[in-house]
């Protein structure tokens, strides 16, 4: 599942590294690898960007009006809907 089979282990590390959940010793190992591996550096940059892009697009903050109305009605709470 990586561009380069040899770097497969690093992809898992990169994912945890982005989350700030990689243990310090593995961080050091990864950083050392990144310094000499362009492919993994690109994976890091583009994965980070991918995450940024879909997190920007959280979408629904409020329920669509009809969905909300039907939900409250189903739950016999329609008197709490804004008049």
């Amino acid at each position: 599942m990586t561009e380069n089979g040899d770097c497969c282990d690093y992809c898992a590390m990169i994912s945890e590294f982005i989350d700030g959940e990689l243990p310090p010793d593995l961080c050091a190992l990864l950083e050392e690898h990144l310094a000499s591996c362009d492919n993994c550096t690109i994976v890091l940059n583009t994965m980070k960007k991918t995450i940024e892009l879909y997190r920007e697009d959280e979408g629904i903050e409020d329920l669509p009006e009809g969905v909300k109305r039907r939900l409250f009605t189903t739950l016999s709470l329609s008197d709490y809907l804004p008049k």
Partner: peptide, 28 residues
Amino acid sequence: EDQEALQIVDWSNQPEVKLSAKEVRLQI
């Protein structure tokens, strides 16, 4: 595994990423 592109491109800083936000969202 077979589908992975061999082409390695760093697009993370391309200005297009910003310009085509809507299309990127559709892709995602």
